[in-house]
Write a protein that binds this DNA or RNA. Structure first.
Lengths: 319, 319
DNA sequence: CTGTTAGCGCTTTCAA
DNA sequence: TTGAAAGCGCTAACAG
């Protein structure tokens, strides 16, 4: 076993002190350029990699970020893999690693340099306020906390305008019946675009499940004339809407169009495949990581809000 | 800021040396029972938590396990959240944290005490053999590597026998057209159960997509008489099969039954909802963590194979 | 701009 | 069975 190279080794090879090597890594601006070159060369030759535990110990850090899901576990299935990998990839660059926590577990069990938290509701605000470490939320909120989220408003605006452009005359919004910021933003995106185009908005809300959406459609389909496009608050809802339409043997996308929101998986297994507002989960993860890292670095300084642009993924459920 | 308690603090409070405290934590059997009590009491009173970085440094460890996905990224969406959280929860107990890696990234970028790897194919074996650190695979393999997986064979046997019990006379298997151990096991589960019951097996394979499964059904449905149950290698395939059946206005579950495999999400958004063999992903994650931790602890000693029992989730697609 | 000294909190010797 | 000393690899604080 060849012991892995240490600062000391590099220092010797470069004929400088450990500190100079350390500085080249952490504060290169304090080191003479010529020395930098020599030191970097030595590091390369020795295949030097800093020992993270030692650094963490010396700096009194943990090199750990905790990712916390406050929602119920069965909601979480498909959603987080990409976010997690996006985050992890970014964290890795600073040699950070992840711990994953669920609702039940005490957030404060064991230390971390920072938190990324998702699924927070207003009830959780007291707990957030009590948190000593810096944190970033995934998900729009009106509590003034730093967050990253999909541009829900912009995304739904885009969807609405696309439906219009494709020639649908009636646009009906079917959203989620939750009182959450992301849902309000999606509704606003739809409503704004409608008003912009001098159309009368029709906002409906159902439980976020295919079954609920299907039931809603079974009850109301007769009210919607041909050439209607349903702008849905999620792909689950869109899936239910499509099922109801198919049952009634309606012509999709000819007479009826459907647009979903999410683009995680459901859009691709539906038949017809769903046109949807696709979230860039990986990017969201990366951004989450960048913000929390920066916040840690800046001693908890506010990082503001960050909206990640979704894309419209066009498929078979619209003209 | 009240500095967090250290070994030293505990030692003073308990009137012993640091070493005794350290021993109480790591090798309690070497400490007099009476002292143990005193020390543990002091730890509690001071709310002592070991500093992981310090420990890692002293023991020359990293406290990091890497989770590596070798598959293409778009397959991965829904699958891993539960495994990851199951793992993380178990790792946390030993103060371990996670780093997440994807195919492209060099596995060996930066150190870890061990690896959990998924999506390995035969091509990857050389890389596995070159790995210095201990690893556990998620996914059956015939390469002799330690692994954890769902009991694919048992699961499909269970599905097949259930279909029989429900009175379906013809059982048709529609699996994935991949040459992977998990698929062979699922097929074997079906075939064994059929032979056991003196039935002639019919094994078919399609690409793992709803579209492919639907196309297959469109072509072959006429060959299958009423009272047939389709035993599918995945929920994606089951979804496609159901779509084709619905299109042809067949009676599900009366004339035709469908059973899937996975139970991740698709089974619940389908209409009718899919009876499926549900994997216990959380448990798989926990087990993965336990094995890699033990393997690390035992200096790489083989841990063997571990099959996690799935459950049959009964829904609307079968009698 | 560079080096020296000290110490982060823990565990591994070794001695008692 | 317990303790004292040394050191894991790094960085902060100071001095030069």
């Amino acid at each position: 076993m060849t012991r892995t190279a240490t600062l000391e080794d590099v220092a010797q090879k470069a004929h400088v002190s450990k500190m100079t090597v350390s500085r080249v890594i952490n504060h290169p601006e304090l080191v003479a350029p010529e020395l930098q070159v020599v030191v970097e060369d030595a590091m390369r030759k020795l295949n030097y990699h800093p020992n993270n535990a030692a650094r963490a110990l010396a700096k009194n850090q943990t090199s750990v970020v905790k990712f916390v899901i406050l929602e119920d576990i069965d909601h979480m299935d498909p959603y987080y893999t990409n976010i997690l990998f996006g985050m992890a990839t970014e964290l890795k660059k600073k040699n950070y690693s992840l711990q994953l926590l669920l609702k039940g577990s005490q957030i404060e069990q064991g230390p971390a340099d920072g938190f990324v938290i998702t699924g927070t509701r207003v009830d959780d605000y007291p707990m957030l306020n009590a948190l000593k470490e810096p944190f970033i939320l995934f998900g729009e909120n009106r509590g003034g906390y730093d967050f990253v989220d999909t541009d829900n408003l912009g995304g739904e605006t885009m969807a609405t305008e696309y439906a219009l452009k494709q020639g649908y005359r009636n646009l009906v919004f079917i959203g989620l019946d939750v009182k959450e910021a992301f849902e309000f933003s999606r509704e606003a995106g739809y409503v704004n675009a409608m008003q912009q185009n001098k159309k009368i908005p029709s906002v409906n809300r159902v439980k976020n499940s295919t079954t609920a959406a299907r039931a809603f459609m079974q009850e109301h389909l007769s009210e919607y004339p041909k050439n209607t496009c349903f702008i849905c608050g999620s792909d689950r809802i869109a899936t239910g809407v499509i099922q109801a339409l198919v049952e009634e043997e309606k012509d999709i996308p000819g007479d009826y169009g459907v647009i979903g929101f999410d683009g995680i998986l459901l859009d691709k297994v539906s038949s017809p495949k769903i046109t949807t507002v696709k979230q860039d989960l990986w990017k969201i993860g990366e951004t989450l990581a960048q913000l929390i890292l920066r916040k840690i670095n800046q001693n908890g300084a506010p990082q503001g809000e960050m909206f990640i642009k979704p894309t419209l993924s066009k498929a078979e459920s619209t003209k």
